[in-house]
Design a protein around this nucleic acid. Structure first.
Lengths: 132, 132
DNA sequence: AATAGACCTTCCAGTAGATGGAAGGTCAAC
DNA sequence: GTTGACCTTCCATCTACTGGAAGGTCTATT
């Protein structure tokens, strides 16, 4: 299977697929003309990568998950540990963004937003007082 | 004021301060020995940058906000527009993360997490069915 | 057979926003 | 005079790709 087909089947751009090969996430065969030749197993790996990346796992985490995926003897505890750590991280990011959102919303709603120069957003960024 | 003091007063690492100078966000004076010499106005700019970056504005948005900050004739509408756009972006990011969180939480809570290889997380990443 | 166009290859550069480190100059204290 | 803290520049590295150039290959049509 050429890279174009692999791209279509995995939902990943060809560029990304080549990049994943560069960093050692898969090793497709080559045909006589030098074209990459993807097997069904390769497509499974690619789809696995696409899914885990879109779930917010880093490429390195994907590498771990992928080796667990390949390992018929794996402990599910190992997988769960990675997923739980990611969950904690996502929670932290959400909390941070929600805090940010509150602050920014407050500022936006207190800014009259007209042609006058007076602006509480700028004042806040400048550090509470009058901008200097 | 040397860069070390500026770093302490602004809450930004010295490396970052030099980087901000590289990309043209400020232009501190130099003393005879070639050391950077920060004025109080420079410190204000740095604190402004620190605050706006931590509020999630990109460096380019900070550049715009900074020029509005310097502009005594600015319209508050200009500032508000930038802030509102950022608010929309933050909302989008939060929604995305919350979706992710739900999916991941579901998977984690359905994985028994023991020494057995059977694992719904891997199954999901592999695409519902049995991993191959 | 020639040619167009789609597809593939490698390699190099660039993105954001820093951060790390090497090699070397300067300054204050002991 | 020498240690150690601080400063300088420059170059490399990080994440996860993405864009583009230069060129080879394949397929279809004329």
């Amino acid at each position: 299977m050429n890279i174009g087909v692999a791209s279509e089947k995995s939902g990943l751009p060809a560029k990304t697929i080549r990049y994943y090969e560069d960093i050692g996430l898969l090793h497709p065969a080559r045909t006589d003309n030098g074209y990459r030749d993807y097997s069904t197993a390769d497509i499974h790996r690619l789809r696995f990568l696409q899914r885990s990346r879109s779930l917010g796992f880093s490429v390195d985490e994907c590498r771990q998950l992928l080796s667990l995926y390949q390992d018929r003897e794996r402990d599910s505890a190992d997988v769960k540990a990675i997923a739980k750590a990611k969950l904690v991280e996502i929670d932290r990011k959400i909390a941070e963004l929600v805090g940010l959102r509150g602050l920014l919303h407050h500022l936006v709603s207190h800014c009259h937003g007209d042609e006058r120069p007076d602006c509480p957003i700028i004042d806040e960024l400048a550090g509470q007082g009058a901008a200097q």
